[in-house]
Structures are given as C-alpha cells and as structure tokens.
C-alpha cells in the first residue's frame, strides 16, 4: 500500500463522503416524515388515502433502490419530469425509506394498547392531546430499534448512487481503480470512509437501544 497515493486520494474521498452524507440525510429526513404520515394514515384507517399508501408501501418495499433510481432518473424525464441526480438520489432514498419507516411507525402505534388512548380520552383530553402526550411518546420509543436499523440500512443503500452518476464514494473508488489501477489504496479508503460514516451511527444505535432497554418503562 502506497501512503503517498492515499494522501493524494484523500481529498477526493472526503468530497465524495460529504456528498453521500448530504444526500443521505436529506433523503432520510424526508423518509421519516413520509413514513410518519403514511403510518398515521394506515393506523387510523383514513379512507382512500389508506389504500394509496398501502400500494406505495408495498411497491417500494418490494423493489430495489437501484431500479427505483433508474426509473426516476432516466424514466421520469421522458414524461416531462426532469430530475437532477441530487434530487433523484434524495427522492429515491426518501421513497424507499418512507415505505420502511411507515411499517416501523405503524407497528409502533399498533403496539400501544387502545386502552391507553381511551384512558387519556376519559381524563378529558382532546384527541390530539392524547396522541401527543400519551400515544406517540410510547409508539416512538417502541419504534426506536427498528428505526435505527432503518437509518443504517438507508445509509448503506446510498452506495448505489453512483449508478445515476452521483460522484459518491463508490463512484470515486471505481473511477480511481479504472483510471490508475490503484486498487488496494482505493478499496482501503472506500472501507475506511464507510466505516467513518456508519460506525458512529451503529454504535449510537446500540447505545440508545441499551439505554431504552434498561430505563424501559414498558410492562
């Protein structure tokens, strides 16, 4: 391994990692919002919207992100919806993630017994007060382990962004391997950078999970 090469490549990887993180977090943020809305619609059986979200969730949970991105990036412009690579990456991740988050939040809501809502109502709370103070705090903390697993899964999924010519870590690595044959160094940096991105999230996830388990208020 040639350390000079590594030093030379380092800035390229840094730039790529920033791009991955930027698009990744935007995608995940929207995934959370989308997933939350879909979960509420599913749980409270809003007519019509419920069927639509159901179809959406099934479609995106059962197809690969790569295929979703190809459709959005290459397909949609043909019907007059041009999408830039950045937006496509974030949107694809948000749509995929939204379908996963929806299931996570929905099962979280389902795990809160109905008597919790009823006893909050019987104390004279309004529906949204009962939701805010009683149901949601419980549903969210039940969802935490699955939620963090989703975040890690989505961050890993960003590794296909290079397919829509976003200059992410994979793109950089492939480029450098193809151009200069510095395979070992390129792969080494690739692994290191993914560790830098994912290891802290993974450690934080298991810490949160452990804390929840010990401080757990569940019966």
């Amino acid at each position: 391994m040639d350390w000079n090469v590594i030093q030379e490549y380092l800035p390229l990887y840094k730039e790529a990692a920033v791009l991955t993180l930027r698009i990744g977090w935007i995608g995940i943020l929207f995934a959370v919002i989308l997933g939350f809305i879909c979960a509420m619609i599913q749980h409270y059986r809003v007519p019509i919207l419920r069927q639509i979200t159901k179809v959406y969730i099934e479609l995106f949970r059962n197809t690969p992100l790569l295929v979703q991105l190809f459709f959005i990036y290459f397909g949609l412009p043909k019907v007059g919806l041009p999408v830039s690579a950045d937006v496509c990456g974030a949107a694809g991740l948000a749509l995929l993630g939204g379908s996963y988050m929806a299931e996570t939040f929905r099962s979280g809501l389902e795990a809160v017994e109905t008597v919790q809502m009823e006893s909050a109502l019987s104390l004279g709370m309004k529906w949204f007060q009962a939701m805010r103070y009683v149901v949601l705090p419980q549903a969210i903390s039940i969802s935490v382990p699955a939620f963090t697993a989703n975040v890690i899964f989505l961050l890993k999924e960003t590794s296909v962004f290079s397919a829509i010519s976003l200059m992410d870590l994979m793109f950089t690595a492939k480029d450098l391997i193809g151009l200069y044959y510095k395979t070992t160094e390129s792969l080494f940096l690739l692994v290191v950078f993914y560790l830098i991105i994912l290891l802290p999230v993974s450690i934080a996830a298991s810490l949160i999970e452990r804390r929840l388990r010990y401080a757990g208020f569940g019966n």
Binding site: I152, K156, E157, T158, S159, V160, M170, A173, K174, I177, T183, T184, S186, L187, L190, V191, Y194, L195, L198, L199, S202
Partner: peptide
C-alpha cells in the same frame, strides 16, 4: 451489518483480482 454490499462486491471483484 456495517459494510454496504456494494463495498463488499468491489472488494471481492476488484480486490481479489
């Protein structure tokens, strides 16, 4: 759990060679 499958693919496909 941590490494994206794409990275593993690259390691095996390019690295092993």
């Amino acid at each position: 759990r941590i490494m994206p499958q794409m990275v593993l693919l690259f390691i095996v496909f390019f690295g092993v060679t």
